[in-house]
């Protein structure tokens, strides 16, 4: 109960809840869609942060878990007639298993080598999905619209997905906070600061890193199922889009890596910025340029991100912002 009273926890939870409730107020499908994107970004960035921010491992191809989970779940729903929930759960399990497998191997690599390996794995999975007939090969799979009937129609299904995602985002934030405040999390942060020194102090780094990786993979796997169920289509290029993976890094960096609030804030800020740029007649064509320049400025001048910057600027905020 003590944790619930900590502003470090309820501030980000409140933020996420606000995004979730917003479309309920407007009641419009378009706000729901844009909030879906925001919540998805928040949840994905917060998951990535467990590995990136707490453990200090730069996973460039983290989207591989989103894609794999999405494929597994989509297949179960579309071809095997599963309900969304167990399918999402299994999508998460599949992603977690992949992370476990990878964790035992590529987490031995450090720094740039690890980052490169994660890119390689994502690209290998994408190329494999294009060849894998069971998952529809290069064309992927399309959801039979009759399936939505089981959820009370397409509209109801879309709202259900939205609420599921909102709950999942809250869970991710909660887990992120709990990890940060735990002995396990402290071990991760010790690894981030100096892995060899951490091991000398007794942190079993190979095991801790692997669990951090698994944890940071399970949620993207589940989110992938929700997203592609909503989307109705899954194909290799959209499931394993390296670009989205890098956008996640940007979100984490923007908000502040290694903080609970940061990735949530960063995810939301990035998506609102993108939407603003895309809909503005002046910036629509050069939105990528504007985003690039902004990213560069952040990397060069406030590398600890918004929350990190606030925390270092005003010591009093350290008790409020985690």
């Amino acid at each position: 109960m003590k944790t619930l009273r900590s502003p470090g926890l309820w501030l980000p939870l409140l933020l996420v809840a606000a995004f979730a409730v917003y479309p309920l107020i407007t009641g419009s499908a378009s706000t729901r869609e844009s909030m879906f994107t925001v919540l998805m970004s928040v949840a994905l960035a917060s998951s990535l942060n467990i590995l990136l921010g707490y453990t200090g491992y730069v996973s460039f191809g983290h989207i591989v878990f989103f894609g794999l989970g999405g494929y597994v779940g989509f297949y179960l729903i579309d071809e095997q007639g599963w309900h969304l929930f167990p399918a999402a759960l299994l999508g998460g399990v599949a992603a977690g298993l992949l992370a476990l497998l990878l964790g035992l191997s590529i987490l031995r690599l450090r720094g740039a080598y690890f980052a490169l390996a994660t890119i390689g794995i994502n690209e290998a999975m994408k190329a494999f999905a294009k060849q894998f007939a069971l998952f529809g090969g290069p064309n992927g799979m399309e959801l039979n619209f009759a399936i939505y009937r089981g959820y009370g129609g397409a509209n109801a299904a879309l709202w259900l997905v939205f609420w599921s995602l909102a709950v999942l985002a809250l869970v991710v934030i909660f887990v992120s906070f709990k990890v940060k405040k735990s002995k396990f999390g402290l071990g991760l942060m010790a690894i981030r600061e100096d892995e060899d020194a951490a091991e000398v102090m007794g942190v079993v780094a190979p095991r801790a890193k692997t669990w951090a990786y698994v944890l940071s993979a399970i949620f993207p796997g589940m989110i992938g199922v929700l997203f592609f169920f909503k989307n109705g289509v899954i194909e290799p290029e959209s499931a394993f889009r390296l670009h989205l993976s890098i956008e996640l890094l940007v979100m984490v960096m923007l908000g502040g890596q290694g903080t609970v609030l940061g990735p949530a804030l960063g995810g939301a800020a990035y998506q609102s910025l993108r939407r603003t740029l895309l809909t503005s007649p002046m910036f629509r064509d050069i939105q990528l340029v504007v985003a690039g320049v902004l990213l560069l400025l952040i990397v060069l001048f406030i590398p600890s991100g918004a929350v990190g910057w606030l925390r270092s600027r005003w010591a009093a905020l350290r008790r409020v912002l985690e």
Binding site: L186, R192, E193, A197, G202
Partner: peptide, 28 residues
Amino acid sequence: RPLNELTVRENVIVGACYGREGLGLAKA
């Protein structure tokens, strides 16, 4: 080899948590 971005206290807690006794956070 200090863990630079952790506080002095957190550095020492790591030692207590993961040392011989493997203490829980509160005891550590």
